[in-house]
Amino acid sequence: MKIGGSYELALPPARAYTVLQDPSILARCMPGCDHLNRIGETAEGHVAYEMKMKMAISSVQGLFAGTVKLADPNEPTSFRLIVEGSGKVGFMKGEGVLTFVANGTGTDVRYEGEVNVGGVIAGVGQRLLDVTAKHIIKKFFGKVAAAIGEME
């Protein structure tokens, strides 16, 4: 499933870029994220973190364990974010490029990528996959904006 969109953050691109690469911010803002532990660099040179995530939307819940990887850094204009996780309800892999475009005093963070899911969530969740992905992304950026608000 293709995903794409943009979100406005009240920071200049260079700052927005560093904030979104900051593991403590990512851990705080990824919905249901328990923690991110740096596990080092992958063979391809990606910075990799181990993560645990408890997704909960209404009564639907899933525990995912996996990795978050930051790749193709091109400071301050773009980088690639790869999130992979698996759990009893299935597995998911989201990969996308985040692009930072100045917009007045703030930044338009554009994202474009693909989400693949497998297992039960893929087999029975089709109807709600797209809205759920959007919901999670919206929530993520909402939290990032709030975190920025606190920092400023």
Partner: peptide, 13 residues
């Protein structure tokens, strides 16, 4: 809505 989710173990209250 709830019982089908529970049967699929997507919800496990």
């Amino acid at each position: 809505s709830l019982i089908p989710l529970m049967k699929l173990r997507l919800a496990s209250p």
